[in-house]
Design a protein around this nucleic acid. Sequence first.
DNA 1: GACAGACTGGAATGCGTGTTCCACTCTAGC
DNA 2: GCTAGAGTGGAACACGCATTCCAGTCTGTC
Lengths: 206, 206
Amino acid sequence: MSTASPAPRRLTRKGQETRRRIVSAAADLIFEHGVAHTTIEDVREAADVSSSQLYHYFDDKPGLVRAVIEHQADTIVAGQETFDLSSLDGLRAWRDWVIEYQRKLNCSGGCPIGSLGSELADTDPEARARVAEGFKRWETTFQSGLREMHARGRLTPDTDPDTLALALLAALQGGLLLTQIERDTKPLEAALDAMLELIARLGGRS
Amino acid sequence: MSTASPAPRRLTRKGQETRRRIVSAAADLIFEHGVAHTTIEDVREAADVSSSQLYHYFDDKPGLVRAVIEHQADTIVAGQETFDLSSLDGLRAWRDWVIEYQRKLNCSGGCPIGSLGSELADTDPEARARVAEGFKRWETTFQSGLREMHARGRLTPDTDPDTLALALLAALQGGLLLTQIERDTKPLEAALDAMLELIARLGGRS
DNA sequence: GACAGACTGGAATGCGTGTTCCACTCTAGC
DNA sequence: GCTAGAGTGGAACACGCATTCCAGTCTGTC
């Protein structure tokens, strides 16, 4: 909304590539260490660019962070859309994938945008709004699946699939957070399994 | 474990009071702005002490943060224990309280230790461990309630109350996180209501 | 009432880190 | 092939902020 990137009116092909490299490196570092513990110097080094380049493509650090938020949201939604979330089996496959993924990461990092949001929510209103926007898009993927189940009669008529989608996203976030802190996937499993159990039971018959 | 406070072997009454004032001020500031955006200078001012006092009671900033974690965990567990979590009605009363509390805070701050944990998990292993410890204590309060329900036959025999307790804590955390980011209590309500609905349905009869 | 050590005040230090600046090279379009 | 502006390099700057230091006062104990 307000100050985006300095937006060089035209980005040459090489420029796009450089910018992409910066955002990607920044995203990785921030995912690993958080915004506060990721220095411009770190990003510079990881992306192999000079500081003038960084400030050529982004207004300042918050500007870069905003680009990272965008990037992470895109990545997540894209990943999410490879799953069919409109059936119990589909949801279970997704659940397995999420847990396996966390295990691969040794339960570190948490959620690529949840952690960011938590760190910036009470500090950078612009960033908070963008994370919220990202979550909305994420939520939508769950909504689609559950609405379809609802329409197909796989959820009792008086269930609200949208509220259920929001609850599922919350359970995922909480599970990821606890898993990151306890360095154990159990909380994530418990949270997701509980939600899937509820969805199953909302199918009409136990 | 490792380096706790410099631990002046004896704390005089006045000393205890000063230390308490520092921790309390730091806790408030950190809750509001996060660790990274809370400077020693801020704490100094809010607690009305000089820097030498701060370093008299704590090794360094991480040391102070560790004390804050401890303090927040104590506060949470104490608050939690004023509720009876061994019945659906008790859980609902707790749910209402949590939501009302967030509303009063304008949905800011998130969870007093969850936010902290998320910020420090991949940065300060000592802090991470202490937050994990705090969560364990918190989890225990849920376990007690649900185990009692289980023992009283208010949960089907094949339900594991401990896993359910963990899921409930995760749902709470996720709900708090989303609520903080979206500035709306809806996610928190959705998450908690979903878990309570599941617990109700695990009562045997719908 | 005197001694040790807990407690306090505030100035000084020093480093990490975000940001700026200027000189230079490359690229696209006419 | 020439020019405007995109892209790049790297040194220099500025400042916030954690931490240190020393000199001083208060407090409990024997």
